[in-house]
């Protein structure tokens, strides 16, 4: 347990030194604030609550940005330390490999959580200051959005570790991670859409569609945020899908947690079998 905390603390310290924390926080805060102000400008007249609009636009932003940041931090974690030679020394200490991996995971997740909470929190504060109304449901939706964004980050940190534990050099890890990001964040949805259009509802049932959506963590995250709360789903244009969707909030969250745990377990396995 002690070793876990020690390793996590070192990862956090390194991330602060390397200005990862600063860069990620500023990036997320900057984009969140600009979306908040641009997004809330036209809503006053139609009486929509700005918060819901912000949640819709922020979660769309998150789908692109958080996985990218998570993969950038994580793809280097194992193969990079091996190439630099620091892993050899670390593993000669009384720590198990799973402790190294889990410690790094906790550290990286803390960095990501910090950046997300602060960056998106800034947007919430900006809304409060500009006098937007905040009711309980809106607040819950916002908190759920931040929480699930961190969870999405965890998913991609775990995926990055798996890549990092399996490949031989850093370049391959970076390439594979970019490929995975493109695949899961962009191509998957387009392919799915194309498939649905071609199929015209003949073969692909609602159940199959749900399964296909759960197979991509980015989609699970999107559905969770855009359909989870009634007001939000109205603005996101997803109300129709939400009504027909058979996926419960619990199922979506479970999918995200599994998407974290399974790659993390595979990464641990691959790492512990690896010879230095």
């Amino acid at each position: 347990m002690n070793a876990l905390i020690t390793i996590a603390a070192k990862e956090i310290q390194q991330a602060i030194r390397n200005r990862w924390v600063l860069a990620a926080t500023l990036l997320l805060a900057g984009l969140a604030l600009s979306l908040t102000f641009l997004g809330s400008a036209p809503t006053g007249t139609v009486g929509a609550r700005a918060l819901d609009v912000v949640i819709v636009s922020l979660s769309s932003l998150t789908i692109f940005l958080i996985p990218l940041i998570a993969l950038l931090i994580s793809h280097d974690a194992i193969v990079g330390d091996m190439e630099r030679g620091t892993m050899l020394l670390l593993l000669s200490y009384p720590v198990a490999r799973w402790q190294v991996l889990l410690g790094k995971f906790l550290g990286h997740l803390a960095v990501l959580a910090f950046a997300t909470c602060l960056g998106y929190g800034a947007a919430a504060v900006a809304l409060l200051i500009t006098g937007s109304s905040f009711d309980g449901e809106g607040f819950a939706a916002f908190a759920a959005m931040i929480g699930s964004s961190v969870l999405l980050g965890a998913v991609f940190v775990a995926i990055g570790y798996l890549v990092s534990a399996v490949v031989r050099d850093r370049g391959t890890a970076a390439g594979l991670c970019i490929g995975l990001w493109l695949m899961l964040v962009l191509i998957y949805d387009m392919a799915l859409l194309g498939l649905l259009v071609l199929d015209q509802g003949r073969n692909i049932s609602g159940g199959v569609l749900s399964a296909l959506l759960l197979l991509n963590p980015a989609d699970a995250y999107r559905l969770f945020n855009l359909t989870g709360f009634a007001n939000v789903s109205l603005f996101s244009g997803m109300a129709g899908l939400a009504a027909s969707s058979t996926l419960s909030v619990q199922a979506l969250l479970t999918a995200l947690v599994l998407w974290t745990l399974v790659p993390l377990a595979c990464a641990t396995l691959a790492f512990s079998r690896r010879e230095l």
Partner: peptide, 17 residues
């Protein structure tokens, strides 16, 4: 391992610390 010291060839450390 707690009673073992090791200095690898071409030792490397985390540069930021």
């Amino acid at each position: 391992r707690r009673r073992l010291g090791y200095l690898p060839e071409n030792v490397a450390f985390d540069a930021a610390l």
